[in-house]
């Protein structure tokens, strides 16, 4: 509300960051629920999980891990860059982050479409003939990497939005909490992948 706005407009950078961290905790717990399901079913079906994991391409998994780790570094660097008042470098680093995210998604697309063309997708006839452990493995694979991919998309949108603010000079060396927060979100995406990668690709 117009003449009511002065209430809203108190600026509290530390508060905004606290809020972001709490949000990140909720995201960790959200994925935590899936990790609980994963660990229980892996414990109950060790052989089938072992067998199913061999279907996944370790190379693509490793490549995507490298991509995400680098993108995490670039977004972290962009925060230093804005503190050094280097607007151009900030934008470049953020742009690189987004490009790497797109590369990740392209890889993911080829990986998923490869699986689907082999008839491995939830409810598919091929999968229904497989053992129950394999059905569970691929169900979790699609759900967890899918939810992770959704977070990548949200992260890209968030970073792109902050880039616009940087261009318009609304984010500057003394006012960059939102850039920090988008970075935190991006690291969260990285953090989850760090665990998804060994759990799905390295159990051979």
């Amino acid at each position: 509300m117009s003449n009511h706005a002065h209430i809203d407009e108190h600026r509290d950078d530390e508060g905004a960051k606290t809020g972001m961290w709490i949000f990140i905790f909720t995201e960790l717990i959200l994925f935590g629920g899936l990790f609980i399901v994963y660990s229980v079913y892996r414990y109950l079906n060790p052989a089938a999980f072992h067998l199913a994991a061999e279907e996944l391409d370790t190379f693509i998994g490793t490549a995507n891990t490298v991509i995400l780790l680098i993108s995490s570094m670039t977004i972290a660097m962009s925060i230093s860059a804005i503190q050094y008042q280097n607007k151009k470098l900030t934008l470049i680093l953020m742009g690189v982050t987004i490009l790497l995210a797109v590369a990740f998604m392209v890889n993911k697309y080829f990986e998923w479409s490869g699986k689907i063309s082999h008839g491995i997708y939830p409810g598919s006839p091929t999968l229904m003939e497989a053992s129950q452990g394999e059905i569970l493995f691929f169900g979790l694979y699609y759900a967890m990497t899918g939810l992770h991919a959704l977070h990548i998309i949200i992260g890209v949108a968030f970073i792109a939005y902050v880039m616009r603010l940087v261009v318009k000079d609304e984010v500057q060396h003394d006012n960059f909490t939102i850039l920090e927060n988008s970075g935190l979100y991006w690291h969260l995406v990285d953090l989850i992948w760090i665990f998804l990668f060994p759990l799905f690709y390295l159990i051979t």
Binding site: T62, M73, M77, S80, L202
Partner: peptide
Amino acid sequence: QHTHIVKYKTYVFVLIALLFMTFTSVAIT
């Protein structure tokens, strides 16, 4: 807050460590 600026170099070292651990875990598997 916002007084501490992390050097670019620090981030590069961290990335190298992360990549090293990634390849190690692939190799161990």
